[in-house]
């Protein structure tokens, strides 16, 4: 961990409306983020994506409560939507899972990237275009001039995801939330995309929150890992120490992972215990 914390979340709870009340999808989650790579792992429905969305206030109908959410000098809980517009996509941005669904199918990818820049900075279109092409180069797209004028259906999945990364890093944000950025990609392409993301994040000193269900990825890529179960953080660990996990859920997840050369004994299956859902306090 280097420097001060960019993001400080205390006791964040997010409830989704359901008939006659709210159901808490995230309960009492606290963490701090410096200029580092923080992984959030958990199974589907454990609330990991909800945290990312809540931080960017992308959940208009949900009930978000917290003791405090501090982002640099801002108090994200209480600022107006007008101010939030200046944060979202500019100082804090989000890379989504599937480039096929997150890019507008009827606009050229380059225009979509420069739009991100033009929204936040006053400059000529030609300048934005130049910036975009530089950024496409930075995410190792060969021939960025040509790619600028392509439509989303003309690019491959790996390239689409690099375009998303370019779009999100163009405004030089302080925090990037990556929600399963590579789960739609093949192993070979996945490593490429991760390496690009890794390099850019370290060079620019961005705080990265990596949301994933892939333990391998998180342990290879992140500095710290939060493990979530049923809306709570059950454990917080340094990534290299993941194998020393104490919580039975984390241990179960590790054991359930098949590995190359791992033998044919039946894989360990999680024995879910009701007490894992009981309130607990993990400081990260």
């Amino acid at each position: 961990m280097t420097g001060e914390h960019i993001l400080d979340v205390r006791k964040l709870s997010v409830g989704y409306r359901s008939d006659g009340g709210y159901i808490d999808a995230v309960r009492n989650v606290s963490f701090k983020l410096g200029r580092e790579k923080l992984g959030i792992v958990g199974e589907s429905g454990s609330g990991k994506s909800t945290i990312g969305r809540a931080l960017l206030r992308l959940l208009p109908t949900a009930r978000i409560t917290a003791e405090s959410i501090r982002f640099e000098e801002l108090d994200l809980l209480n600022i107006s939507e007008r101010e939030m517009l200046k944060v979202r996509g500019r100082r804090m941005s989000m890379i989504l899972q599937d480039p096929k669904f997150s890019l507008n199918p009827i606009r050229r990818v380059g225009d979509q990237i420069s739009e991100a820049y033009l929204t936040h900075f006053k400059c000529a279109k030609a300048d934005a275009r130049a910036k975009t092409i530089d950024m496409l180069q930075a995410v190792q797209i060969r021939d960025p001039e040509r790619v600028y004028d392509l439509y989303p259906h003309e690019v491959s999945g790996g390239m689409g995801q690099r375009i998303m990364i370019a779009m999100m890093l163009l405004t030089d944000p302080d925090v990037v939330i990556a929600d399963e950025p590579t789960s739609a990609l093949d192993v070979t392409v996945r490593l490429q995309v991760l390496n690009i993301l890794d390099r850019l994040v370290s060079e620019r000193g961005i705080g990265l929150i990596m949301i994933s269900h892939d333990l391998n990825l998180v342990r290879n890529f992140c500095d710290r890992v939060l493990i979530m179960y049923a809306g709570q953080v059950v454990e917080s660990l340094k990534a290299p120490e993941l194998s020393n996990a104490q919580h039975p859920y984390t241990q179960g997840l590790l054991a359930a992972q098949p590995r190359i050369g791992g033998g044919r004994t039946p894989l360990k299956v999680l024995d879910r215990r009701p007490e894992w859902k009981e309130p607990l306090e993990v400081q990260a």
Partner: peptide
Amino acid sequence: DVSVQAEIL
């Protein structure tokens, strides 16, 4: 998910 994948495998 990994945990469910293990069950199915």
